[in-house]
Design a protein around this nucleic acid. Structure first.
Length: 597
RNA sequence: GGUCUCAUAGUUCAACGGAUAGAAUAGAAGUUUCCUAAACUUUAGAUCCAGGUUCGAUUCCUGGUGAGACCA
């Protein structure tokens, strides 16, 4: 039973019987009553004054009276202007709590037989992952988890950008300056090694340009004539011609990078079900372009290049195939999407977790897919997220102001460890237990910090603040869970029978407890709405609310401890639910919760 | 130049078109016989500007200003 829906239905009935006005109950908005007022749910009557033909107060009074006598849930009400505040009966709260207790997999829906695909990460193989990738991965992974909790069958994918001129740059630099260095010989992670030579290329390339300008060559020409640049271009040509030597080098270096990435993903706690490689998909899509041409969706210019005219949709003309017949990003994205739906038919959604600098690209991509006649194009969604800024400004790889993902995670864990030791919280922990705790805390802090902000908004990452363990942070919520676990252990020691149904009966409820039951029972609804809006931030906020509410409750409990055991019994029962709810909420976000700390 | 996004306490973030705009931090003042003080309580502090839409606007529309992204 869902209290909110029951009340919505009752209101719908009241509108029909009192005023002869028919409204579907889903369309009747109920909101939580503000703390200053008496009540749990508030119904705004302003929009219905036209049908009631009465003042706001009289309208609220009528509906309130109707609900009080006709609804099992509403025990009382009050009217303030156009706001009808409804008080829910204690019995309803107790029933709700019992209901929640009985639900085994609370917060998780059974399989609905539908499937979705979520893409995230999708890095280049010429440099290591950075802070932006962390936001991307955590978002994508959370969304996948949220879908799973909603009963979907989820396929997690990424497309690895493993070809192109930028990869060749690393390769050229390694060949010329590497001296045969390998991850094994240098002790560097594979992705770090590739990144090192990508930077090296840029440095040497700049030197060459400077030298050429010195000889009187204009800057633009120097950039195109620098020997290193020509070599990289030549390497790309050889790669495309499947030159054995180049291909071997490419395979080797990418292999190193993948080993490095795997370590990073493992530390982050994200996984993938299927990997796509651009080297295998970059030729896809040409066929689709041909079909589009035949259908007249696309048009060809005299030079042979293929375009689509999107001016009617408020966009511009977009290139789909160059005059020399080579593909552009758009071409391969069209091909890859088609391929994915061939391979995994019947997906309800395909979510692309990609930064908002690609907003335009995806708008065009989805429009093209639709114009090509693919029904599933409507299910394509760009989960667009804003850039992560640093207090010092924007991250720029060329200026070396990039925050490396591995370094950052290590730093977070390190700080968590230092802080925990300082507080003397780990007495009696083994070395490995302590390390696990630091990992949980450090990464939990990082994940929560990156997920609590609305994805589409640009956010500021302050390393100092992210490491804070107070306020609206992951560790605060984790800590709350650990405290609840401690209470439950204590209750078991005292042999409190919190499993018995009877301990819930005839106990007067405190306001605090109703708030808690309200929050807990609302939980699945929040997940449902989050899955529609793709908002891990909704769940993050929810977990924090719950933890905060619980801490308030905890403060009362301390004062209250000595009174009669029935009440303690109910509170323990609540603790159990709070713990369970926090745990599942954090699980959706991909954040671990320790039992002890 | 064209298109898109964002703008809220000192700071970082909230708010299906609803009540006196919430939190968290930093500031000020308190609370430890207690299942963990990594906590709690009290206090002060904000909607970029100008119009419009309506019972009612942080939210929707128009025009500015500022920040950012994309496209040539």
């Amino acid at each position: 039973m869902n209290v909110q829906i029951e009340i919505q239905k009752s209101i719908s009935k009241s509108l029909s019987e009192l005023f002869g006005h028919e409204v579907a109950f889903e369309n009747l908005a109920l909101q939580p009553t503000r703390r200053e007022f008496e009540g749990t749910y508030t119904f705004v009557t302003f929009p219905f004054l036209k049908v009631s033909k009465k003042s706001p107060e009289a309208t609220g009074q009528l509906i309130g009276e109707y609900l009080q006598s006709n609804s099992d849930q509403v025990s009382d009400f009050n009217v303030v202007k156009g706001f009808l505040n409804l008080t829910i009966s204690d019995g309803t709260w107790l029933d709700t709590l019992k209901d929640v207790c009985k639900t085994v997999n609370f917060g998780f829906a059974p399989s609905n037989g539908k499937s979705v695909m979520v893409e995230y990460s999708s890095p280049n193989t010429n440099k290591p992952l950075h802070l932006g990738h962390l936001r991307n991965n955590f978002l994508g992974y959370s969304v996948a988890q949220i879908y799973e909790a909603n009963g979907y069958d989820v396929t997690k994918v990424q497309i690895i950008n493993d070809r192109g001129i930028h990869i060749c740059k690393s390769m050229v630099a390694w060949q010329k300056f590497g001296g045969g260095e390998t991850p094994g010989s240098s002790g560097l992670k594979g992705d770090k090694l590739a990144g090192k030579y990508y930077v090296k290329f840029d440095q040497e390339y700049k030197k060459e340009i400077a030298a050429l300008i010195e000889t009187g060559m204009p800057k633009e020409e120097a950039e195109k004539q620098a020997p290193l640049f020509l070599e990289a271009q030549e390497m790309l040509r050889k790669w495309e011609a499947h030159d054995k030597e180049v291909y071997d080098l490419w395979t080797t270096m990418n292999g190193w990078v993948y080993e490095g990435f795997d370590q990073t993903y493992e530390k982050m706690g994200v996984t993938f079900d299927k990997l796509y490689y651009e080297s295998k998909t970059y030729l896809l899509g040409k066929e689709a372009v041909k079909i589009g041409l035949e259908k007249g969706v696309f048009y060809q210019k005299e030079d042979g290049s293929v375009w689509i005219d999107l001016t009617e949709d408020g966009l511009d003309h977009k290139l789909l195939l160059r005059s020399d017949g080579t593909a552009v990003y758009m071409t391969q994205d069209i091909g890859t999407a088609i391929e994915r739906f061939k391979e995994f038919p019947g997906q309800e959604k395909l979510v692309y977790t990609v930064g908002n600098e690609q907003d335009y690209h995806f708008k065009v991509l989805f429009l093209i897919l639709k114009k090509l006649g693919y029904q599933w194009a409507d299910g394509c969604y760009h989960l667009s997220y804003g850039m992560v800024d640093l207090p010092s400004g924007k991250m720029k790889s060329r200026e070396g102001t990039v925050v490396d993902a591995d370094d950052l995670m290590d730093e977070m864990v390190q700080t968590a460890g230092d802080h925990t030791k300082e507080l003397g919280k780990i007495d009696g922990f083994s070395e490995s237990q302590a390390r696990e705790l630091y990992d949980t805390l450090g990464l939990g802090a990082l994940k929560y910090f990156l997920l609590k902000v609305d994805p589409k908004k640009r956010m500021l990452f302050d390393p100092q603040e992210s490491i804070e363990f107070q306020g609206n942070t992951g560790p605060f919520i984790q800590y709350t869970h650990a405290r609840i676990s401690a209470i439950l252990r204590r209750a078991e020691d005292l042999k409190v029978d919190f499993q018995s149904e009877s301990c819930l009966d005839n106990v007067p409820l405190e306001t605090v407890e109703k708030d808690l039951i309200y929050l807990i029972s609302e939980y699945p609804e929040r997940i449902k709405s989050a899955a529609v809006e793709y908002s891990p931030s909704v769940i993050a906020q929810y977990c924090f609310d719950l933890a905060k509410e619980y801490n308030r409750f905890y403060a009362e409990l301390s004062i209250f401890n000595e009174s009669d055991p029935d009440k303690v019994c109910l509170r323990v029962k609540l603790s159990q639910q709070v713990a369970r709810t926090i745990r599942s909420g954090m699980a959706l976000l991909g954040i671990d919760v320790p039992e002890k700390m």
